[in-house]
Design a protein around this nucleic acid. Structure first.
Length: 593
DNA sequence: AACTCGATTCAA
DNA sequence: GATATTGAATCGAGTT
């Protein structure tokens, strides 16, 4: 961490365990035409160069023609198991997977660049300055700012093949070396190295999960839609059940032309009917007693199902019995993953019965119980909180230690501390929580103060917050009007809540990344030994799903637990904080928790 | 026709 | 209970 948490870190960190980082062979893959992986026949489309850790060529560069990249990659993977270096795994790996090629290790230049851009412990230098001064976060470092790469000087003599005319290979290799040079040979550097390796492994896992897909039972989904909405209707037509409810709403509100999908119209109609509301949010409507409320809430419920996960959703996003969202690794500032396509981050419980294992297979659904407060206990080395976390239920542990056994209050207080609540129930419980767990609460308060002061904070492995907006920093130094002063302070508190939560959410994301990485390695090792314990098919912040041959369900569950223990040790070494995971074997997702 | 934005609801 | 973090996606209603 930037300061406080870093000082409290134990000597036993991840340093000795960085097997992956010590790999000494790297295969750099460059596209000949920087934009398109494929181009006209006859000319090389890509070039692969095997180098050592210093960037020295170990073999002559391999020219790749047409669509033969999978062949080249598969051969080199089998012979050398190098760490592959791609500008972006997201753009290369899906094609390799489609051709049946798996790779074990990777360094993703784009993902590493994004982390280094905000990493407080990275070694300063020209490369760091160049990526930090780029306005576009997705842009590569300008070639003229990269240090020169030492590709073997005689490659042209060894081969009469066309050289890499674009210089793409040299640029990629130079950036790769520059990125490695950013990782210091210190305890913090070991953590940063772990983060870069884990993030890159995440890119592989994300692509593999998209390739595998979530098994989706279309018939079951259609069945539950028919039950809730009625049979399918053409686009632009309300499903029968929705239309019935809409008609009832129009009658009850005496508004014959009301479109209940329009919040503005609905609000007007309700006010005209004498219902004093300022918005149409469902949880506020539940407070009101009026005949229209019940059908209105029913309408909102079916409308949401029809719009977000209805027949159209199934047609658009489920193919060949698989839902294949795209994962955007590191797509959230905190390091959590974003996703694209089909709303994978918000699969409602309502439709989870449609997530169903293939015949002969089962789903193993696992989640890390109360991950974030446990992460806070580890980050802050708070022995008392670690003790409360020792049982299965951390919130009950907190409740028994100082909240008179009241679990609900303990949970509200803890969440409030991590999110930055100041008022209400949560705010009132804070002094008690701080008295009981001074180190844990002290750490998040420190992080909040850093943010309010315009400073950066970092996760345990060294993912830093982006710099505070320059506009705000400027405005706070010269406050003019009273109103402007208040706005600047409000933005500061907001920034403080962000940095407060960042250290916890960011480190939790790192734990989850390591969990999946450790699990993937175990699944791959098992497969090489002839045991197919299934594959990861879904990930959501602190929850994973595997699609597993039924006979190997117990093996998969054991690996999930083993991977969680390994991830905890990899991050934090030996510490007295438990990170229990619950793993259940089910046929369909709705049977999990 | 394509874009943006507010309101809403879903998820961890 | 009264609210605080991070997201995706849809709709309506306004704009370019």
């Amino acid at each position: 961490m930037c300061g406080k948490a870093g000082q409290t870190a134990p000597a036993a960190g991840p340093g000795k365990k960085l097997r992956e980082w010590s790999v000494q062979q790297f295969a750099v893959v460059a596209s000949h035409s920087m934009s398109q992986p494929e181009s006209e026949a006859g000319s090389a489309t890509a070039v692969v160069q095997l180098v050592d850790a210093a960037g020295t060529a170990l073999l002559p560069p391999v020219q790749v023609y047409g669509n033969s990249l999978p062949v080249v990659v598969a051969e080199l993977e089998a012979a050398r198991k190098p760490r592959w270096v791609f500008d972006s795994v997201h753009s290369w790996y899906p094609g390799l997977l489609a051709a049946g090629v798996h790779i074990e290790r990777v360094h993703d230049l784009g993902l590493v660049r994004a982390i280094l851009r905000n990493a407080p412990y990275a070694v300063p230098g020209g490369y760091l300055e160049s990526i930090r001064s780029q306005a576009d976060p997705s842009a590569a470092a300008p070639a003229h700012l990269l240090p020169p790469a030492r590709v073997s000087e005689n490659q042209g003599e060894l081969f009469s093949e066309p050289k890499d005319q674009s210089g793409a290979l040299e640029n990629l290799l130079a950036e790769f070396l520059a990125q490695r040079a950013c990782v210091p040979d210190t305890e913090r550097g070991a953590r940063l190295g772990l983060l870069l390796a884990a993030e890159s492994a995440g890119a592989l896992i994300g692509a593999e999960m998209t390739h595998a897909g979530v098994p989706w039972d279309v018939a079951e989904h259609h069945r539950l839609l028919a039950e809730a909405l009625g049979p399918p209707v053409p686009a632009g037509v309300r499903p029968p059940r929705m239309e019935e409810l809409a008609a009832e709403l129009r009658r009850l509100l005496d508004a014959p032309t009301l479109n209940p999908d329009s919040p503005a119209e609905l609000l007007k109609a309700m006010n005209r009917a004498g219902i004093a509301v300022s918005n149409t949010r469902a949880w506020e409507l539940t407070e009101i007693k009026h005949p229209v409320i019940e059908p209105l809430l029913a309408y909102k419920k079916v409308a949401r199902l029809a719009n977000a996960n209805g027949y159209a959703w199934v047609d658009r996003w489920v193919h060949d019995g698989r839902f294949r969202p795209e994962y955007i690794v590191g797509g959230v500032v905190t390091g959590r993953w974003a996703s694209h396509g089909g709303g994978a981050l918000q699969i409602p419980h309502q439709v989870r019965s449609a997530v169903r294992a293939d015949p002969g297979k089962v789903l193993v659904v696992a989640d890390a119980a109360q991950l974030e407060p446990r992460i806070l206990a580890a980050l802050s080395r708070d022995e008392a909180l670690a003790a409360a976390a020792r049982g299965r239920d951390l919130y009950q542990g907190i409740a028994d230690a100082g909240f008179g056994g009241d679990r609900a209050h303990a949970k509200i207080a803890m969440l409030g501390a991590m999110y930055g609540a100041t008022t209400g129930e949560s705010g009132r419980l804070m002094p008690k929580l701080k008295a009981t767990y001074p180190r844990a609460v002290g750490l998040v308060e420190w992080a909040a103060a850093q943010g309010e002061a315009g400073a950066a904070v970092a996760s345990f492995l060294g993912r830093g917050t982006p710099p505070a907006p320059a506009q705000w920093l400027k405005a706070r130094s010269r406050a003019s009007s009273e109103a402007e002063q208040r706005a600047v302070e409000a933005e500061g508190r907001s920034r403080g809540r962000f940095t407060r939560n960042f250290i916890v959410q960011g480190t939790a994301a790192e734990w989850a990344l390591c969990w999946m990485g450790e699990l993937r390695r175990r699944l791959n090792a098992g497969r090489e030994a002839g045991v197919d314990a299934g594959a990861l098919v879904f990930f959501l912040h602190d929850e994973i799903m595997l699609h597993v041959p039924a006979a190997q369900a117990d093996t998969a569950v054991a690996l999930v637990h083993e991977a969680a223990r390994a991830a905890s040790a990899l991050l934090f070494g030996q510490i007295p904080v438990d990170f229990p995971v619950t793993a259940v074997v089910v046929d369909s997702y709705d049977q999990a928790k």
